[in-house]
Amino acid sequence: MKWFTMAVCAALMAATTVTAEEKLVLDGSTTVGPIAKAFAEYYMSMNPDVNVTVSESGSGNGAKSLIHGTCDIANLSRFMKDNEFTAAAEAGVMPVAHVVAMDGIAMVVHPSNPVKELTVAQVRDIYAGKITNWSDLGGPDRDIVVVSRDTNSGTYETFYNLVMTHKVDGEKVKEKIQSGAEYVGSNGAARQRVQSTPAAIAYVGLGFVDRTVKDLTIEGVDATPESVASGRYAIARPLFMFTNGYPKLGSHVHAFTTIHLSPKGQEIVEEIGFVPVTKY
């Protein structure tokens, strides 16, 4: 009886350690989420014994998880911040960035909205609460419903840095987003809000623009993969996956963080609506 119990215990332990190796934990941004999820499906279909889990809890959370050692790959839609790097170094974690794709932040409105074009300054004024009615922008007399991503998202930070921060007389001025702005937790929710609200404006990642909303021309440039890749579109940023050190060659983490460099990876990135970093 005793040896039997021991054997069972050993088998259980072996099973646990095996499964512990065969899992890949991803955490972080909702913007990188679709890429991560598609990569995860693709990777699991190639390696059926690996369990890839993807949490979409925000860029900051992803960074935190990496620092805590609770995830293998952190998806960030912004670069790591100074204090996150400091905390990582103190915890003995060395974050290495992998740029998996480029993304433009598109300004979207309801298709019934006649406004077609805005400048970055106009967008800033809308979000700062200086322009409150569409009639000021050549549209109908409707109060603008301002929709922003929640402050915990990388998209918010990018938008804040690229749009709300500007230079006046050579000095950096950071405008505050008006307190009346609605905050939503994800790109999908932002688009949905615009879809159902004729007077709304929101910013979403390029991959989330579809027929149900109209994306605006910013500074005369349409948000397309081409204009983002060429750098002509003003509100664009790279998307990252961070790992602790460069992943060991041949490991699952390495294989996963190099998917975007393969032709299949490029195809996936393109199909979900982002801009790949490779050109096959």
Binding site: T16, T19, G33, N51, T53
Partner: peptide, 18 residues
């Protein structure tokens, strides 16, 4: 505990995995 994508876990994996 919650993640948006993941496989079905076996009972002992529940101790460590979301």
């Amino acid at each position: 505990a919650a993640v948006s994508v993941g496989k079905v876990l076996s009972p002992w994996e529940t101790l460590t995995q979301p």
